[in-house]
Amino acid sequence: MIQSASNHEPLIRLVDVHKRFGPMVVLDGIDLELKTGETTVVIGESGAGKSVILKHIVRLLKPDRGEVYYRSKRIDNLPERALVSIRYRFGFLFQLSALFDSMTVADNIAFPIVEHSKKGKSEIDVIVAEKLAMVGMDGFQDRWPADLSGGQKKRVALARAIAVDPELILYDEPTTGLDPPRSDEINELILKLKRELGVTSVVVTHDMASARKVADRIVMIYQGKFIFDGTPEAVMKTDDVRVRCFVEGRCSDEVLKTLQGKSEA
């Protein structure tokens, strides 16, 4: 990993990003800087816009207003072709894994390598085996995605995300839908990739156990804005009732009142 001393420049910077779908405002002025080597966890309720933030970083979505930077390069207005050389540095773990159903596990992992390099078959086989070993799935090369369990799919998808040695890995709800031991395997993998590859990561989740375990920094999105930004320790001590409700996993007092009101009536 090349990390020059003067590298205080953030890897990714979102500046005042606004996004709406029809009448629904999803992002209402988001600022975010990702420092090299740091793991940032984005928490928030379902539908809060966490995936939308990730999609802005890889330009699957364009902001209505605001800017997105990769190092010092503005990427939100780049043409699709110019993006290829930048997206190549990103690995994206999709919420539903997004493995290609029509390809074997090996071909799935080989896909980004074939797209981005002129490596030969035997060289690619070696890389595929190495990446699969990294996620504990070596030997599954010839299986089909449909035959894998949810946790196995996640791990294969992670192997595909790291196939071309990205600088930045984006995890969209990596533990959602997995049982607790399986979730923790994924947490350990996230920590391992950070340790061994030195990657910068963003993890989107509403699983607080996972957030506390992998985060260097936690931000919370609420109604289109960040309402919390701090360490995993700070998030446990905050006075903000909206953050507390989320972190402690209980519903807000207003909801509680209406629920009780209904049961009494």
């Binding site: 999609k55 890889v58 699957l60 993006l83 290829v84 997206r87 190549y88 990103f90 994206f92 999709f94 919420q95 539903l96 894994s97 997004a98 493995l99 290609f100 159903d101 896909f111 980004p112 797209e115 981005h116």
Partner: peptide, 11 residues
Amino acid sequence: TEQISALSVMG
């Protein structure tokens, strides 16, 4: 299942 998005992200 986001496979189309995955293609875009992989360039």
